[in-house]
Design a protein around this nucleic acid. Structure first.
Lengths: 224, 224
DNA sequence: CTCAATAGTAACCATCTAGTTACTTAAGGC
DNA sequence: GCCTTAAGTAACTAGATGGTTACTATTGAG
């Protein structure tokens, strides 16, 4: 029954002719993500989202309640994506320095490939995280991340390749900072400094720079 | 004549009774900064700005043309404030390491004291810097900043206390990153990590961390 | 095959919003 | 003290915007 249903759905999906709740929901979520990350929550227009999704505006209220409910769904979906990807890195199996380099580069590249994540954070912070605080599902997503970093730091410490007493949360914020600010503010930065910070060569150079900064900081102090 | 006019203005200002163009203009600009940085360009309401300024809405169009003109004025005024303050640091007179520490701490503290600057950057970047690109007055403001950092780097290099080949723009972006991301995203970060990042002790710790990160990176590589 | 539940449509509306119009009042050079 | 120019007010409007109503079509369990 499960099988026959999904086969049918797939057939419908392929033809695109009749109704398909899953597809409609997904189309709305995607369109909302695009519109909201491009224009912010207040700038996003409900009519524009419906049009982008190729769906009647009424459907959007049918599936998500109202504009705010839709925004919350976008927020949860977007956060969940990055945290899931991070867990997939399996950092704890690697050599501490290699693991750290991998985490730093992953974070940087994720920001390059997912500008919508950056925009959404900007929007949500302008809102003092009011919606994020309401979400039940987002907080638990973050235990694995800090746990992973903590393990990496402890093992690096024990091996004598990392300095002692580094706080995992502080370090993660530093790693994210170095990429986030550059990408999130690339438009104003390119304008004020008169250089195109989005050029591929520039992006690659920034990635190397970030790795160097983080690893230089983690270097044991005694070695100097 | 010049004197008598300004004395009169001051008297008017003190009593607050009759008309005073300068004061009206300043009140609108201030109210617009508050409203726009709190809610973004699209979220800000022209009526709310007028009310906040204690001024008739018509005046806002009288002095700034339209909402966009007002936004541009806010943008120019806010950028100009930080760049002017930076020049006042007189970094080039100091020992390179001390100068760098001063710049890093200044930047961090400026972000703490001026959340409106952070919000405005977020808004303008969501807009792909469309308004900033129009401004004639903003670009020239930035030469002194990169120039100052370049001098500091060169002198530190010559003295053997800084590594060689550091790009001033890349370094400034790094310095700004470490504070910007933390403050700008403090609401979401506090929520996902379950810690209050705005607590005074936390802010002080972050300041020290940022200084350590930047100076560790600048340390000459040969020393290891 | 039937029928209750769900997916989907089109037209509508109360409210809000940026910007305007038509007008009054003060300023200050001559 | 006159008179042009700039500062200021109140009431209004065209269009946009989030959300709703009343209706139709499809689905799939029994």
């Amino acid at each position: 029954m499960e099988g026959s249903t999904s086969t049918r759905r797939e057939a419908l999906r392929a033809s695109g002719s009749t109704r398909d709740p899953e597809r409609t929901r997904a189309a709305i979520l995607r369109a909302a993500t695009d519109e909201i990350t491009a224009k912010g929550l207040t700038g996003a227009r409900v009519d524009a989202i419906a049009k982008r999704a190729g769906v009647n505006k009424r459907m959007l209220y049918h599936y998500f309640g109202d504009k705010q409910g839709l925004y919350l769904a976008v927020l949860e979906h977007t956060y969940s994506a990055i945290r899931t990807a991070e867990i997939g890195l399996n950092l704890t199996e690697l050599d501490p320095v290699a693991g750290m380099r991998k985490l730093v580069l992953f974070t940087w590249e994720y920001f390059i490939e997912h500008p919508e994540f950056l925009s959404l954070l900007a929007t949500e912070n302008m809102n003092r995280a009011a919606y994020l605080k309401k979400s039940q599902s987002i907080r638990p997503l973050h235990r694995p991340l800090t746990g992973m970093i903590e393990v990496l730091l402890k093992r690096g410490e024990a091996k004598g390749v990392f300095r002692k007493g580094v706080d995992p949360v502080e370090l993660y914020i530093t790693i994210a900072s170095l990429g986030f600010f550059y990408m999130s503010n690339r438009h104003t930065l390119s304008t004020i400094f008169g250089e195109d910070l989005s050029a591929p060569k520039r992006l690659a150079a920034r990635g190397e720079h970030i790795v160097e900064v983080v690893l230089a900081y983690l270097e044991p102090i005694d070695n100097k």
